[in-house]
Design a protein around this nucleic acid. Sequence first.
DNA 1: TTTTGAGTTGTTCGA
DNA 2: GTCGAACAACTCAAA
Length: 453
Amino acid sequence: MTSILWLRRDLRRADHPALAAAHSDGDVLPVFVLDPAIYDSAGAVRQAWLARSLRALHDSYDGRLCLRHGKPEQVIPELAKEVGATAVHVSTETEPDGALRDKRVRAALADHQIAWVETGSPYAVTPGRVRNAQGHPYRVFTPFSRAWREHGWRGPSVEPKRLSFATAESDDTAWATLDDAATADGLPDLPEPGERAAMQRWHDFLDDGLAHYAADRDRPDRDGTSRLSPYLKFGVVHPRTLLADLVGRSAKGADRYGTELAWREFYADVLHHNPDSLWHDLRGDLGAIAYDDDPDLIEAWRQGRTGYPFVDAGLRQLLAMGWMHNRVRMVTASFLAKDLHVWWPAGAKHFLNHLIDGDLASNNHGWQWVAGTGTDAAPYFRVFNPVTQGQKFDPDGSYVRRWVPELRHLDGADAHEPWQQPDGYAHDYPQRIVDHAEQRREALDRLAAAKAG
DNA sequence: TTTTGAGTTGTTCGA
DNA sequence: GTCGAACAACTCAAA
């Protein structure tokens, strides 16, 4: 018997339940489908990262990965017929578009009496499984995370020792497309692709980073995070693998890291139950908030030319690295939503376009949290101050100086307030495009007005 | 069923 | 400089 292992957000070989399931069916044909509907919507950085990750995946599957280009609902059934596969194995996809796509593929396969088998998902607990006592999904993080931990998860899946592969020709033009993307001009330095690099990074982090994680994770001027998000994005490493390694480590850092993984699972769960919340307010009942749409201000924000050093540093880091520190994601998002009064999807799209780790659920629900339209009925008055956030989390200004060369002549925390320095604008750093205190009041007024209206 | 208390990530003001 | 209170009202989990 031959079965197809259709890989999507599970580009690995280790700890892979769907692979184990396919293996137990007989010969395995590992396949990736380059679907223009998804691929074309990714920015150059994530395309390059996907391309390099797929090359690494091809290697880890002994050069047996079959790459095809096209619509999965056509490609997968055709390929199944071509190789005489009797089943298609996948990890469950829970993101809205992917879930719909799978429904179409599944229907097409059913027409040919080919089985569709879902085993595992990109999450330790598949979205939809964690429920409260009434059987309802959670919409508040803390109770979710408690229930999520209590629910527990399987141990890592044992990798089949000797895989027996089926083979099929790859689409050479698809590989060419990927190779072009992988080597495109102007790409930032990207992480080393592949499972081995991911695990190397993880073990380095366990050895050197975990002990200080709880404190350092909020410091963009330090290398305090695991930087595994690009690998988690495509399932090069599975969170279950990481959680298993954290067991028995009593340090605060281990607990905290587990909590951060729980956030990823929480937002996936929320999105699973509310697919429309991907691009629309989760809480549509808040009343109509008045938004602005000034293209010049939005473009200044995109380019990191707002005149607020911490904000600009983050936005420039995003363009330069394809990555931004989490703390700064919140601050820059707050600036767009609260200081420029722009509806969050514009910012979420910009992030997704440039982030190497751009994850739909985490990104868009993170934005909704900042905008106040998402989960967490948090106080409406939570508006980040871009200056004090910088002073607090980048106390000697080194993060700002790294990404904003116009401010490198300013010492220490002076870099956060060039307007306080006689030579603050000596190197053409832009003036502030809005007054934060004024716009904070404006944002609060608009929320109050929306409520009253 | 009703009630109670908590809710990632903040800021400002005044003592 | 430090610290606590105030900043809405609401949702939701749990007792």
